[in-house]
Design a binder for these strands. Structure first.
Lengths: 222, 222
DNA sequence: CCATAAAAAACGGACGTTCATTTTTATTTA
DNA sequence: TAAATAAAAATGAACGTCCGTTTTTTATGG
């Protein structure tokens, strides 16, 4: 048999990784056997080793693929934000993060697997230097806001933006994976409003707040 | 050999659980074998089954013991808080949560094991209804604050307090377990200041803020 | 001596991985 | 176009190891 086309190989790897991911998420990495994966992917046990060197490498391949998907998604989310400190933008960020968490909850479970079984080796980059990343994207906006006097004294815009991002993230993770079931005592929508308000009021000076009133009212009316 | 005293049995269980916890945290639940535990605790393999019915029950016993330790700790932290919405109190809450996370980081790893391998069965109560819990403790303070007009329009004190608690929690967890290494671009101390400011400014009305100025200055001077 | 604790041995099964074998299929040949 | 070819892909049995648990044996001390 001549060599399979790259597309066919990619396709087969995809079906293997799909099955493996489903199993890893459902029962963890160590609890999932190569036999489980071979059954799930409808590929013989031995054949798995024509595509992957070890079981670990299947896990790593899944994560690598996922990391780029999530990264793209995050880029899109951030690209849609014009004025990062506007209440409306914060609220939108929260909604986007909520969708990101809910649509890819398996990914975050893999992150916990990585924390536990690989000391977060593959996911470190997720949070390492995230503030700098935001600063790189929105730096000029932050500086302009500061120059306009939009910010409260002694609050760093990039740090607060990171805090807001992390809070939205954590909120939905707790709801989705930790059985929070409305742990803030509010619906998702109300919680988003609440957090948006806190971060807007907490970051913006009174002057700028009145300027943003229209944006805030529109964003928090739901 | 006559029956061992309850104290001796408790002591032996403690050494077994200490060894098991260390192993679970280092390499996960499924990756840790009963033989590992027996070696770690210097107890023969068979003898483990004189103290625990199954491997799962060792895990559960560890969690049960830990949950009560953490719960006590949290009670102490909350008992030390007089005025929950004062900046100084929020800052102190953050510091306490930081210590709680850092001193018991193994516990939180067990939580992730629980999420992955037991669908968070044992830890659900950690976040479920947490806002109600805060409301039960600080309810009268929240009501009084609202009556005094301390709160911004449309922000629920208990929800915001939960948000602050969760944010502090998440901050230190990311730093400790996810390789965040100053992911907010600040030292722990600066990050605590930043978050305290955001939650104080974000929650309190301008009037009450000026009243709290002394408290805030004292809390955020470091 | 006896009840109990502790240790050791044994059990059946599942694990990740390897490998000899069979099947498949793109290409070459007729 | 159809048969032949050969190299790659797919297979599943087999390997040695380790698993959680059970059973048996030995040690202990009142």
């Amino acid at each position: 048999m001549p060599k399979l086309s790259a597309a066919v190989i990619r396709g087969k790897k995809d079906t293997i990784e799909d099955a493996a991911r489903e199993l890893f998420i459902k029962q963890g990495f160590h609890a999932t056997s190569m036999r489980d994966i071979s059954k799930g992917a409808d590929v013989s046990l031995g054949n798995l080793y024509n595509y992957y060197v070890t079981k670990d490498s299947i896990f790593e391949s899944i994560i690598d693929g996922y990391l780029s998907v999530i990264d793209d998604r995050l880029k899109t989310i951030l690209a849609e934000i014009d004025e990062p400190l506007e209440p409306a933008s914060l609220r939108k960020l929260g909604e986007s993060v909520g969708r990101l968490v809910n649509e890819h909850s398996d990914f975050w479970l893999l992150m916990y697997i990585d924390v536990l079984e690989f000391q977060n080796r593959h996911f470190r980059k997720m949070f390492d230097g995230i503030t700098d990343r935001f600063r790189k994207i929105f730096g000029h906006k932050f500086i302009a806001a500061e120059a306009r006097g939009d910010l409260r004294l002694g609050v760093d815009a990039a740090s607060v933006f990171t805090a807001a991002y992390m809070q939205f993230f954590n909120y939905f993770l707790v709801e989705k994976l930790f059985g929070g079931n409305q742990h803030m005592g509010l619906t998702d929508d109300q919680a988003l409003n609440c957090l948006t308000k806190v971060f807007a009021y907490g970051t913006l000076s009174e002057d700028s707040l009145s300027r943003f009133k229209r944006s805030a009212n529109k964003a928090l009316s739901s």
